[in-house]
Write a protein that binds this DNA or RNA. Sequence first.
DNA 1: CCCTGACTTTGCGCGAACGCAAAGACCAGG
DNA 2: CCTGGTCTTTGCGTTCGCGCAAAGTCAGGG
Lengths: 235, 235
Amino acid sequence: MKAQSVAIDISLVRNLPLFRQMEPAALARLMARATPVRVLQGDTVFEQGSQAVAFYLLLHGRLKVSQVTADGQQVMVRVVHPGDLFGFARALARPDYPGTAKAAVESLVISWPMADWDAVVETNPRLAINAMQTIGQRLDEAHTRLREMSTQEVERRVAHAVLRLAEKAGRVEAAGTRIDFPITRQDIAEMTGTTLHTVSRLLSAWEGQGLVEGGRQKLTVIDAAGLARIADPQG
Amino acid sequence: MKAQSVAIDISLVRNLPLFRQMEPAALARLMARATPVRVLQGDTVFEQGSQAVAFYLLLHGRLKVSQVTADGQQVMVRVVHPGDLFGFARALARPDYPGTAKAAVESLVISWPMADWDAVVETNPRLAINAMQTIGQRLDEAHTRLREMSTQEVERRVAHAVLRLAEKAGRVEAAGTRIDFPITRQDIAEMTGTTLHTVSRLLSAWEGQGLVEGGRQKLTVIDAAGLARIADPQG
DNA sequence: CCCTGACTTTGCGCGAACGCAAAGACCAGG
DNA sequence: CCTGGTCTTTGCGTTCGCGCAAAGTCAGGG
């Protein structure tokens, strides 16, 4: 992970929901303070528990944010997609990062010093509203997952997770919709609160039914409607 | 639920974290637009799926916010404590309320028209930051619960939930710390993703060990340290 | 005062999913 | 081409917690 000296092309970010309705001048000022950083596959952008020194925006690539529990178990909190804000610990009034962000593929992020956060929010009311919506949507997603974890059996949860991945990170191919970054059974297990064994069994079964196509760190959804039927039996 | 015409005493809210560092004049202006509402036990402040017409602050009492899943299962999203902001659907960019808020005891809330939200946030940068922290803390709590749901067995989850309730809504009594509002086994089950049967069994067992004292819609934590040992075995 | 409805307790059997175990497949690097 | 490590598959026994069932308890209203 090393900083680039190149300036950021504003046209790359102007259309992001986060910056919607922001004055061009304010956006330009904001971007002038940003640092672009290239992150190689497997590199971590920040580590759980370390002091929150910056907040970030993902421009290109994919990141996995995970937490380790006190007794050493991994949980994947979320996948960061291009255009997503992440590492905004300051907004949560936390001094440290609650999770570890690791690049699933080579990625490009831009970062701001965390100390800028309050000033940025105070001087850009429109951005404040957009950022709040971003965080609010995260909250919504978290509640959705909580609801699933509380009420649905493992098979439905995994089906939902796979469908979400296909929607957020799918690349359409001849065979179907391929998840556009390397993802392991273990990853899916950590997203759905189960074990890699169970995920493997499910995916094998689904592959037998022609719903998906698996592979080492690969996953392609062949029959999304069929999967949706597993995810929501009556709907 | 009926609106009161009485003006709100600013001294009641001035010290809330949400309004910290806000200019008194701005706070006064904000309060002038607020409507106090008294809510009787069992009344709902807003219903899941209904159009979000207002956002709220709880001054006194307790509310339970729950969601019903597509297949009819209840999940308790959170308990609203005095000083908490709730029903801020607009901040999540949602047109409707994602859950139902019901008064566990007679409560006093103040409400603002939802249409005011954007203006309030835009014209009160300090409040925007505070509100974002509030939402951020919700997100943090949701992640904590997700982590628990993913990695811990039911007994630990219930122990955590009870400890949190005691901390957030506990009243110290001779015998121990009493949860300060009526709460059923079903409620606790909906907070922890289990069934009332399992919760009942656990509480009975704990009562046998002198950790808690149960009762109809009552719960008192006798030995918090003992419960904490169940919640986090290795310490 | 009794009746009704909501809440709670407890027993029992079952099944989904975990934990453990072992083997097979694939990739990268030497 | 071999080797080591990572990832995946599959089998088997176990168990935690659910589902079902039934009875007991409590509070409030008629």
